[in-house]
Structure formats: C-alpha cells, structure tokens
Amino acid sequence: MIVLGIESSCDETAAAVIRDGSHVLSSVVASQVSVHHPYGGVVPELASRKHIEAIVPVVNAAIADAGITPEQIDGVAVTQGPGLIGSLLVGFSFAKGFAYGHGIPWIGIDHLEAHINSVFLEPNPPAFPFVALLVSGGHTSIYLVTSHLAFHPMGQTRDDAAGEAYDKVAKMLGLGYPGGGVIDRLAAKGDPTKIAFTRPFLDKDQFDFSFSGIKSAVMRHLQLHPDPSQTDQQHIAAGFQAAVVDVLVHKIINAAKVKGCSHLAVVGGVAANHGLRNAISHDATTAGISVHIPAIEFCGDNAAMVAAVGYHRLKAGQHSTMEEDVYSRVKFRPVAN
C-alpha cells in the first residue's frame, strides 16, 4: 500500500510517500523558520498563509521524488490535530480534495500518534510493548505503546513542555528562535557544573513533568547576573540542559522499569537534541534497556510519520469522512488491543 502523508500542524509544510508503513519513498519539508525568527516564535496567521503558498509545490515534489504518479497512491493520511487551526485547515482541506479527486480513502491522524510511530521508519524498530517519551515544543508526555494504534498515557507536563522551555530560555539569552538547536550547541561548549539549576522531578516515582520552574530559575539567575558573556551563556545553557535532560532520562527509564519493558523510544523535536540522545543512550544501555530514536530528519514535524500511521489505520479499515474537522487541543484516541 502506498500512502501520501501531509503535515501542516504548525510552521512546516510537509508531504511524504510511504510504502507499507515503513519504507520512505520521499519526504519533503518546507520550513518557515526564517519567517517567524524575527518575532521570536510562530505567528499563526503568517504560518497559515505560508502553508497555502507551499502545499501544492510540496505535495508535487513528494510525489515526483517518490518516482510515482498520483494514480499509484492508495490512500492519504493528514494531520488532523492538535496544532494551529489555520495551519491544520490548509493540509486537511487539501487532503480531502486530493482523496476525493482521485477516488481513494483518506484518514485524519493525531500528531502525537504520528510522532510515536516515527520510530518505525528506522531499520530496527522497538518490539511491543515499549514506553515512549514524546518531547517537543508543545508536548512532553510518556506513553505505554502496545501496538501501532494503541497508546496508554502515563504522564505529561503540567505546564511548559521541554521544547517550550528551551525556546523561552533562548529568548532570555537573546539567542533568537527556535531555541533548541542553539541551546544544544552552546551547552556542548559549557560546563554544566558551573551553574547548577534545580531538577524539577516533582515526584520521582511518577511520570508528570514541570519545566516552568527551571525556566524561572534561569530568569532569576539573569536578573542577578545581567549581560552574561559568551562563556557565561555557554555555562547557563549547559546547566539548563543538564537539568532538563536529567529529568527526562530519569522518568522514561523509570517508566520502562515499572512497565517491565526492555525497549524505550524518544520521539518529537527535542529528540534531535544531542545532549538528550547521548544521555538516554548511555543510561538506558547501562540499565539493560534498548533505546530507539528516529533519525534527525524524522524527529521534527514531518509527513513520513503521518503516512506511517495512516497505513495502519487504513489497513484496519478506518477512514475519515468529509464532515470531519481539525482540532487544536490534544484529543488522543487510544485503541484497545
């Protein structure tokens, strides 16, 4: 089965063609970082306008790169939510029209569900059941995953997501948007012991997160030490990242132990963070747990992961109707197996 995936939940317009749920024939992503950089974050109205400009060229490029014709596509999968309503509507409406015009089934996909399935785009995916840490700019959660379509929430952030905290700290330091990559690079040059920030574990035996406190701790440090030098910025970044990573790594490894899982996955935009990738790989291996992290290109928002889920849902006989609409908030739909 060949599935066309479409993603437009935030500020990337993406399309991909996937065969049988795991073979990536093409993946095209049009980023809007340069558009939103001057504003220090995503401007929803600008994002939706850029999606309108990019959707047709991006889909055409994905089909061409896959070496197929539109007539060879068996189904369409598109992000339905959560995300920015204006942005979601562009991809969702296009997918409806494409599927209707070609007489093929289509399915709306939950963005978080797609991120979890991104690990199955890799050569050695995890065996079920496994625990997954989904960590991005908008979401930080832990799930027990028992099949491609069954996800059981274990914990989530109570305030800021980890990626959101990265963006806010980067803004405090005058580093611009997005903040994840630049903080990661600065942290690699700094000493995490120079400036020690609190670890917001909440209850170490539970799986909820809170990152607003560490963001506030960085703010207080900057109020006491304004105009940091480049070296000071590196130490601040290193201390901040070490605190965030320590919490994320502890929680997901503990979740795997509690559920008796020998596999864990880390997915979402922050999974591209080198500090997190290195720490989880080291600590999980020490604990005898196999780690699965998507390639960098599949950590951020992309359409390949959307098509991967779409394959399994379409194969199960599920499809969406023309009356369905997008949604902005988390609306996760675990399926009992």
Rank of each mutant, 00 (worst) to 15 (best):
Y166M: 12
L224C: 11
P228A: 05
H148Y: 13
Q230A: 12
I142S: 03
P126Q: 11
H152G: 02
K215S: 03
H235E: 09
T193K: 14
D110W: 01
F201S: 15
H221L: 03
K215P: 01
T198W: 06
N117Y: 07
A132Q: 00
H148I: 06
N124F: 05
A127W: 00
V169H: 02
L224N: 14
F201A: 14
A162V: 13
D184H: 02
A237I: 03
D232N: 12
A188D: 14
H235N: 15
N117R: 14
L112K: 07
T231H: 14
L134H: 09
S136Y: 09
T231S: 15
H221P: 03
G180Q: 01
G181M: 04
V145N: 00
L121T: 09
D208L: 10
Y166G: 08
L248F: 11
R199A: 05
P228W: 03
H111T: 07
H115A: 03
G213W: 07
W106C: 06
L149R: 12
N117C: 12
L222Y: 00
K251G: 07
Q234Y: 04
Y143H: 15
A150V: 06
Q206C: 12
A114N: 11
F211V: 04
F130W: 07
G190D: 12
F130A: 05
A196G: 00
A132W: 01
V247E: 02
F197H: 06
L175V: 00
L202H: 05
L186G: 01
Y177I: 06
G179M: 01
P228H: 06
L149T: 15
A165D: 05
W106F: 15
A170C: 04
K204L: 14
S229P: 10
L144F: 09
M154D: 09
H221Q: 04
I107D: 02
A238N: 03
K215G: 00
T146I: 10
P123S: 02
P129F: 02
V218I: 09
P125R: 01
L134I: 14
F211E: 08
D246C: 09
H115R: 02
S141C: 11
Q156S: 13
I116D: 03
L173C: 01
T198F: 11
L248Y: 12
E122F: 05
E113R: 04
H148R: 15
F201E: 15
K194S: 15
D203S: 14
H148S: 04
V182Q: 05
P129R: 07
T146V: 12
